[in-house]
Design a binder for these strands. Structure first.
Lengths: 205, 205
DNA sequence: ATTTGCGTTAACAATGATGTTAATCATAAC
DNA sequence: GTTATGATTAACATCATTGTTAACGCAAAT
C-alpha cells in the first residue's frame, strides 16, 4: 500500500499533538486546527484519520485512563511486601508516575467532571481489581496494633496527598517560592513527606 | 433613572448564571448564549452589562479567589487557640466551606493552570497574610516534642486532603460506593479522617 | 506505463459563538 | 403629556470552528 510522504507517521503525530493540546486546554479549549497545525498537517488529516474531534478525544481519554489504572494497580498491588514497604513503595511509585505525567490528573478530573458516565469505564477496569487489593490491605490493617484504619480511606489519603501538588502546581509553586529557594526541592521533599504522613497515621514510623 | 422591568436585578441574574456555567464547564466550555438563556434574557444583555465574555469571567474569578483567600485566613488565622484546636477547627471549617462550594476548587485549579499570571493576584491578597499565619504556626510546631515539621508542608497536607474529595468527586463516589452504602457517609467521615491524619502526623492525638 | 489506492491538500460549506447596533419599551422627571 | 434615559430586544455582522469534498500526487502492483 503506497503513501505520499509520511503515511502512518502522521497519525501518531496527530495523536501526540492532540494529547498535548487536550491535556493542556481540555476538550473545549483545544481546537482541531491547532492540533493539526502542531502536528504539521492540514486539519483535514485529523478528520481523515479520526473522523471527529470527539472520537479523537475519546481515544486519548481511554488511553490515559488505562495508563492510570495500570500504574495504580502496579504500585500498590504487590502482596509479597510487608505492609510498611508496600505502602511506602506504592506511594513513591505513584508519585514518580505523576512527576512523569504531571498534566494527567487534572485532565482526568476534568473529563470525569464533564462526563461522569465514563466512570463506568474506569470502574470496569479498576475497581474489580482494586477491590481485591483493598481487601488485602484491609486485612493487614486490621492486624495492626492500636490503629483502626480503613483501606478505602487510606487510599483516598494517598491519592489526595500525591495528586494535589500536580493539579495545584501554579499555586503551590507560588506558595513554596516563599519558603523554598527551588521548586524542585519542594517537590522532592513532598514525596517523602507523603510517605511520612501515611506511615505516621498508621503508627508505622 | 428609569428602567423597563428588572433593571439591576438582571445584572445579578446574569452573574449568577455565569457563575454556575463557568464553574461547571470552565471558560471555554461555557457559552455566553447559554448564560444569557439561563438568566432569562437575550445574550445582548450580557454584553450590555459586562461588555465581553472575558470581563464577565474575570469578575467571577476575582470574586471567587477573594472568597477562597478569606476562608483560608479565617480558618487557620486564629492565634488565640492552642495548636491542636487551631488545626482541627481550621481543617473542619475549610472542609465545610468546600461542602458549601464543591465546584470551586476545580474552577480555581483550572483557571490557574490556564492563566498562571493570575497567581500574582492571589499572592498579593493571600501570601502576605498567610506568611504571618504560617510563621506563627511554625513557631508552635518547633515547640512540639519529638516532631520536626514544616508549616508550609502542613498546609499543603491539609489542603490536599480536604480539596481532593471535591475535585475528584465522581471518582470517589464510584470508589466509595463499593464500600459505603451512602456517599454522604463517606463524605462526613472524610472530614474527621483528615483531622485525624494531620493530628497523628504531629503526634497530637 | 497504466492502473489502483491511500495520503494529502486546498477550498468550501455549515454551523456556532461573540460582539454590535438600531429600534422599542417602560418609567421617572419635568 | 412630553421628554429624557436607561433597559431590553431582535436582527445583523463577523469570525472561528468543525466537518466535507473534489482534485491531486505518489508509490506500489500488475
Amino acid at each position: 500500500m503506497g503513501s505520499q510522504k509520511n503515511a502512518n507517521d502522521t497519525e501518531v503525530r496527530i495523536l501526540q499533538a492532540a494529547e498535548k493540546e487536550f491535556l493542556e486546554k481540555g476538550y473545549a479549549g483545544a481546537k482541531t486546527t491547532d492540533i493539526a497545525a502542531a502536528a504539521g498537517v492540514t486539519h483535514a488529516m485529523l478528520h481523515y484519520y479520526f473522523r471527529t474531534k470527539d472520537k479523537l478525544f475519546d481515544k486519548i481519554v481511554s488511553e490515559k485512563i488505562d495508563k492510570l489504572v495500570e500504574i495504580l494497580l502496579g504500585a500498590f498491588g504487590n502482596p509479597e511486601l510487608p505492609l510498611k514497604e508496600r505502602l511506602s513503595e506504592g506511594i513513591s511509585r505513584h508519585f514518580e508516575f505523576l512527576v512523569a505525567n504531571p498534566g494527567l490528573p487534572r485532565f482526568i478530573i476534568n473529563e470525569l467532571a464533564m462526563h461522569p458516565e465514563r466512570i463506568d469505564y474506569i470502574r470496569d477496569r479498576l475497581f474489580d481489581k482494586t477491590g481485591n487489593v483493598l481487601r488485602g490491605i484491609q486485612k493487614e490493617l486490621d492486624a495492626l496494633p492500636g490503629v483502626s484504619s480503613d483501606a478505602m480511606m487510606l487510599l483516598a489519603d494517598i491519592v489526595s496527598l500525591n495528586v494535589f501538588p500536580f493539579v495545584a502546581a501554579p499555586m503551590l509553586k507560588a506558595a513554596a517560592g516563599q519558603f523554598y529557594a527551588d521548586y524542585g526541592d519542594f517537590f522532592e521533599k513532598r514525596k517523602q513527606e507523603n510517605v511520612k504522613t501515611i506511615l505516621a497515621k498508621l503508627n508505622l514510623l
